[in-house]
Every structure is written in C-alpha cells, then in structure tokens.
C-alpha cells in the first residue's frame, strides 16, 4: 500500500542552501534511498546523491537522516512513525559539493600516508600460513566499507576540526588491521603516535555506534593501538633501557 510521506531534503552547494519539502508515495519495504530516487525521477531530476550497491556493501550513500549518520540504502522507512517528517542532509564533517554529496577526498589522502602491507617471506612451498584464530580480528576490521560515517561522527574531526592532527576512526582500524596482521613486518607505531594522532581519540565510542558493519572500532581497534603506543613510549622499563643504552 502506497502512503504519502513527507521529506525535507537539504538542497544547495558550498555557497548557499536550504531544506526543501517533498511528498513521496512510499511502498512496503522501501528504504530512504528508494524515496530519494523517487523524488529524483519525478520531482527533482538534478538532485545529487551518491549510491551504488543498494545493499549495504559499498558505503556510498552515507548521509544524516533525522540527525543520525546512516547508510540510506539500509534505513527502512518503517523505522519512522507514519506521520514523521524525514529530514535528510549531507554528512556535516566534510565540505558539501551539492545537495547530499560531499567532498570525502580528505579520507583518500589519509589512506595514502599509511605504509602499505609488507609481508615476510613465504614458506618453502610457496604458501603463507596463518591460523583462522589469528586473522579473525583483522578480518573484522577489513569488513569496513569506507562509508566514512565514523569519520562524520568523530568529535575530533566534526566539532574540533582537527583534521591535521587525527586521521580518524576509519584509518585507525585500517592501521590496526595492518598492525595485527600476522604476516606484516612494517612498524607504524611511531606514526600512529605522532602523525596519525591516536592520542586525540577520547574514547566516546560514537564511531562504533554508527558503524553499519558493527566493527568494534574503539574497543578492538583504537584502544589496542593506544596500548601499543604506551608500551613503546611510556613503559618505565623501556624508558630506563633507552636512557642506559641509547637504543630504542
């Protein structure tokens, strides 16, 4: 049964913009992205929105729906009361390009700063061997679909605009996935401390809450990285060792 639902969608660009009202005929099972597509096809052909897979696998259609960072393809209309107006706006942490599309290129720049995976030698028979137990945690981090909702909600990036000092939760778990990879031999701890700013995270766990892949970003990724930095730089025995020997 089609029902008319009210939408308020932010329209505009970097210079100016405002919310515009739309009425949409919504059918059973629809998600917010379906409604946006209907508005696009019938009322606002030039409405800008990113999407690809429409199944929560690609992380393109991130936006803020009634104030919450969500994937619009996985947000069902029946989550909202039948008479509730649904307000949709672009992610606030990034510069808006147009309507619901914002400039997420900063994230791609952060990724480039991270030293790539550097495996040790293969076994004599040409294979690498790793136990499933030893890769479970890394695989959890690798579920990340780069929707950047964690970056959007991170206070350090969103409210304090410290993009120079902190790469954000997405790249913390990318780093954690490399650091915990059983085959990796690179050392990223000095950069995790300084350049990537692990100390900036004050563990409010907002990133974990919005992750559509349910990755334990804070507890499983960022906190262990903080511990590794502490072990390396603030362990009293290590400090003494460094003083005595001059070696790190």
């Amino acid at each position: 049964m089609a029902k008319t639902r009210k939408f308020r969608i932010w329209r505009g660009d970097e210079q100016a913009g405002d919310f515009q009202d739309y009425d949409v005929e919504v059918e059973t099972g629809m998600v917010v992205l379906d409604a946006i597509h209907l508005i696009q096809a019938e009322q606002a052909h030039d409405l800008a929105v990113r999407w690809n897979c429409k199944a929560g696998k690609c992380g393109s259609c991130s936006m803020e729906i009634n104030g919450k960072p969500r994937l619009s393809c996985m947000t069902r209309m029946n989550e909202y009361a039948p008479d509730e107006t649904i307000t949709v706006q672009p992610m606030r942490t990034f510069r808006v390009i147009k309507d619901l599309v914002c400039d997420v290129s900063w994230n791609y720049e952060q990724n480039k700063k991270i030293a790539p995976f550097k495996p040790g030698p293969r076994d004599a028979d040409g294979n690498y061997r790793m136990k499933q137990d030893d890769v479970d945690r890394v695989q959890e981090f690798r579920k990340c679909i780069e929707c950047f909702l964690c970056q959007d909600v991170c206070h350090v990036l969103r409210d304090h605009e410290q993009k120079e000092k902190f790469v954000g939760p997405r790249f913390m778990i990318r780093l954690a996935g490399l650091e915990m990879h059983p085959l990796d031999t690179a050392d990223r701890i000095p950069k995790i401390k300084e350049e990537f700013g692990v100390g900036m995270c004050n563990i409010t766990r907002c990133c974990t809450e919005v992750c559509p892949e349910h990755i334990g970003i804070t507890d499983n990724g960022i906190i262990p990285l903080k511990e590794r930095v502490v072990d390396r730089y603030y362990d009293p025995l290590r400090i003494l060792w460094r003083k005595l020997t001059g070696k790190t």
């Binding site: 990113r50 690809n52 897979c53 696998k57 690609c58 992380g59 393109s60 679909i145």
Partner: peptide, 10 residues
Amino acid sequence: SLLGKAHTVM
C-alpha cells in the same frame, strides 16, 4: 564513482 565503490565490491 569514488575509488573502492565499483561493482567488484558487491
């Protein structure tokens, strides 16, 4: 699209 969003991801 953006890098990493191509159809292979599905």
